[in-house]
């Protein structure tokens, strides 16, 4: 599904062998969609010589972390809506 700015989302905590760009410290964490960047080729398959299609939408997701906020760029297939 497509998310919109302001929506709460949870990052999947699933294990993923192999190359991916979701930092471990936000897996399983809940954050807020801050920006919808665009759709881009998927690094998880492109890293192995494939074309990276279908493209995945990329979001900037904001997470509260102690005394600061961290914004992380996360592909849509790692996100689920958080209630």
């Amino acid at each position: 599904m497509t998310y919109r700015v302001g929506q709460r989302v949870r990052v999947a905590a699933r294990p993923h062998e192999g190359h991916h760009r979701t930092p471990g410290y936000v897996k399983g964490k809940t954050g807020r969609i801050e920006r919808v960047h665009a759709a881009f080729t998927n690094p998880e398959t492109r890293a192995y010589g494939e074309d990276g299609l279908p493209e995945q939408r990329l979001y900037s997701v904001g997470f509260a972390r102690g005394d600061h906020l961290v914004y992380v760029d996360i592909f849509e297939h790692w996100l689920k809506e958080a209630k």
Partner: peptide
């Protein structure tokens, strides 16, 4: 080779 392959190779 693309940047994803570069990173995967580093990793």
């Amino acid at each position: 080779m693309n940047v994803d392959e570069l990173r995967r190779g580093i990793e």
